[in-house]
């Protein structure tokens, strides 16, 4: 499984998600104005939406690259279950997108005048929440892998599924920044991620099986 993560990572282009995240964050003050009073309250939400879009950006590569060079057929005939394959793909996607974004989010919060303890809460919420984004995205990618122009459709399918994660995740960060108790949304966010982890690999593998045939 680790080889798989490695293989995907050397597939290249995944680091762009982080750069995208950075640029979006930097662009926001140009749109809404540089005042701290205006930036600080919306910072957690902006950073979460930015992270979500950055995740979305690299989703269509999850299976499409392997589909193009024929590796997906070979992986499907290899003696590993497709559930394991999708899990490994999601893990690889998270390692290359979710994890760096979670780490980068804390320093980026400074740009958006995020009040102090909020940085930690923001990183923590992203750390807990982004695996769910990768898993959901993996499912969406499995649904659309057989399509020639699946990229846009993938976003249409995946974004509504991101809503619960976004709601809970942004709420953790917001409450953390305002110094409120963030334990409840954090627990709910964790529950969403665990639920995705338990169920979605099966759904994604089922979709992949249909798409391949």
């Amino acid at each position: 499984m680790r080889d798989l993560a490695l293989a995907v990572r050397s597939g290249g282009g995944f680091g762009l998600g982080l750069v995208f995240f950075l640029i979006v964050t930097v662009l926001v003050p140009f749109g809404v104005g540089p005042e701290t009073a205006r930036l600080a309250p919306i910072a957690p939400g902006i950073l979460w939406v930015g992270a979500l879009l950055a995740c979305l950006l690299s989703l269509d590569r999850i299976f499409a690259l392997d589909r193009e060079d024929g590796a997906l057929d070979l992986l499907a005939t290899a003696p590993i279950p497709l559930e394991g394959l999708t899990l490994a793909k999601a893990a690889a996607h998270w390692l290359t997108t979710g994890l760096p974004i979670s780490i980068a989010a804390a320093p980026l919060g400074v740009f958006l005048s995020l009040p102090w303890p909020g940085h930690l809460w923001l990183s923590l919420s992203l750390l807990v929440g982004t695996p769910a984004l990768s898993l959901i995205g993996c499912f969406g990618a499995a649904l659309t892998v057989g399509l020639r122009r699946g990229g846009l459709l993938l976003s249409v399918l995946v974004l509504p599924l991101y809503i619960p994660t976004l709601v809970f995740g942004a709420d953790v960060a917001r409450r953390g920044a305002e110094g409120l108790d963030a334990a409840t949304p954090l627990a709910l966010l964790g529950a969403v991620t665990l639920g995705c982890l338990a169920g979605l690999p099966f759904a994604a593998a089922a979709a992949l099986r249909v798409s391949l045939r």
């Binding site: 649904l143 599924l161 709601v167 809970f168 949304p185 969403v192």
Partner: peptide
């Protein structure tokens, strides 16, 4: 498959929205 997964997430979204 999408409908099944979507249903779960639709219910989840309903609760998330209430919470939010």
């Amino acid at each position: 498959v999408l409908c099944l997964v979507g249903s779960v997430f639709a219910v989840l979204s309903r609760y998330a929205v209430n919470f939010w």
